[in-house]
Design a protein around this nucleic acid. Structure first.
Length: 104
DNA sequence: CGTTTGACTTTCG
DNA sequence: ACGAAAGCCAAAC
């Protein structure tokens, strides 16, 4: 087989599915845990293409600055609500305390 | 096949 | 703490 990462997407999905509720992770960390450092943007691109009915905890993924990376809109509010429902403290400016990064 | 795009990250002022 | 600029990389055009 010539493919170096035949199932890169599914590997990423597995890591994401393993993120415990009540914690958040950055795109970069997620990519790194999946064995693909520096693929943060690729992760974001993948999440954007996820179907609405996915069961993956996409809402636990935020950027390295501790903010919701989704552009302002209904989607961002949805992510904020989902996080708060899990006990994650989200400030007015979509900021999240670094202590929620349990895995860093 | 060259250019643009983007749910990113880091550095600098 | 904040915004601008540069760096980075795969997918889409």
């Amino acid at each position: 087989m010539t493919e170096a990462q035949p199932h890169a997407r599914e590997r990423l999905y597995s890591v994401l599915a393993a993120v415990p509720a009540g914690t958040v992770i950055s795109y970069g960390q997620l990519a790194e845990l999946a064995g693909m450092p520096r693929r943060a943007r690729w992760v974001g691109q993948l999440l954007g293409r996820l179907p609405r009915d996915t069961r993956l905890p996409w809402h636990r993924v935020i950027n390295a600055q501790g903010r919701i990376s989704l552009p302002p809109g209904p989607a961002a509010d949805r992510q904020k609500a989902l996080l708060q429902a899990e006990g994650v403290r989200v400030s007015a400016g979509y900021r999240i305390s670094l202590s929620e990064f349990g895995w860093k």
